[in-house]
């Protein structure tokens, strides 16, 4: 095991990103992903271990203009119980409802679920559907810098993303969906929640006069990263949501998904489920 040289539990964001600028920092919040990875040797601790749970302003859910901002340290339980999320983004509440177990939801942070960059990350899927962006903060030239990266562009591979080691993910931001926004999320598994998704499908868009627009489709565990299924989106975009477009969407889902075999499921079963869930979610959206 690598030696940890210092432990930090900063109160301010400045303090945190300054430390990260100095290099080789392992960040934790709830620890629910970090601990199994360090225990198994899959991940090593850096020279500095930093607990970000005490940084002021890093957790909480708030409206900011026409957007909703969720602090990175906000727990999944907080998302699940938040009245604003329930009202404005029920698809996110639905994913939180089906996230791991109660004990994990109470500890796991939303930012951590994103930074873990698992293709099966359950909170990522609805955030892709909501077209969320992440805020990344760093310290450069004596000042706090932030940049915003669309979540869709965040992931580069399994457990890999565009966040630099000196950057801290501070928040997730998405525009409040319009009143005609419809969306739903479905994940598989014989257990209601305590399950690493075999696959998940989330679909959302604006449905008015029977026509589906601004469609965004996300799939989990069918590609090296959480996936925006552009083929499915194209099959639905600007079309009436009906049996024909649903059939086209299911066919596109088959093409978009490129799953692998692993201990949890075969590629065949994942593809099969993606098609089943695409149809199911669209039917749910239609109110069937």
């Amino acid at each position: 095991m690598q030696e940890i040289k210092s432990y930090l539990a900063p109160r301010s964001l400045d303090e945190a990103v300054k430390a990260m600028a100095a290099g080789d920092v392992t960040v934790f919040c709830g620890g629910t992903d970090l601990t199994p990875q360090t225990d198994s040797g899959a991940k090593r601790y850096g020279a500095t271990l930093m607990n970000i749970r005490r940084i002021e302003g890093l957790s909480g859910i708030a409206e900011a203009g026409d957007s909703i901002r969720i602090g990175a340290a906000t727990t999944v339980t907080e998302v699940r119980r938040d009245p604003l999320i329930a009202r404005a983004a029920p698809i996110l509440a639905e994913a939180a409802e089906h996230f791991a177990s109660d004990q994990i939801r109470n500890a796991a942070s939303l930012g951590g679920n994103i930074c873990n960059a698992s293709p099966a990350g359950d909170m990522i899927n609805p955030l892709l559907v909501l077209d969320a962006a992440v805020e990344l903060a760093s310290w450069a030239d004596g000042a706090l810098r932030t940049r915003s990266v669309p979540l869709e562009n965040f992931f580069t591979g399994p457990r890999r993303h565009v966040k630099r080691p000196d950057e801290l993910l501070t928040a997730i931001v998405f525009r409040k969906p319009a009143t005609d926004f419809v969306g739903w999320f479905r994940k598989s598994g014989p257990r209601p929640a305590l399950e690493i998704s075999t696959v998940s499908v989330g679909i959302g868009g604006n449905l008015s006069d029977g026509v589906f627009r601004n469609v965004r489709v996300a799939m989990g565990s069918v590609a090296p990263t959480p996936l925006r299924a552009h083929g499915v989106e194209a099959a639905l975009e600007g079309r009436p949501l009906d049996a024909d477009s649903i059939r086209a969407a299911v066919a596109a889902a088959d093409a978009d998904a490129t799953p692998i075999d692993d201990v949890r499921a075969s590629a065949w079963y994942r593809k099969h489920l993606v098609k089943v869930f695409t149809e199911e979610v669209l039917n749910h959206v239609l109110g069937n």
Binding site: Y7, A9, F28, G30, G31, T32, T35, P36, L49, N51, R53, T77, S101, D102, Q103, I104, N106, A107
Partner: peptide
Amino acid sequence: GACTVKVDGRTLNSCLMHAVD
């Protein structure tokens, strides 16, 4: 869940939680 404890009124798995936290 065998290691469940209550922290600040909510339960979590103590096997995943760093003691320093």
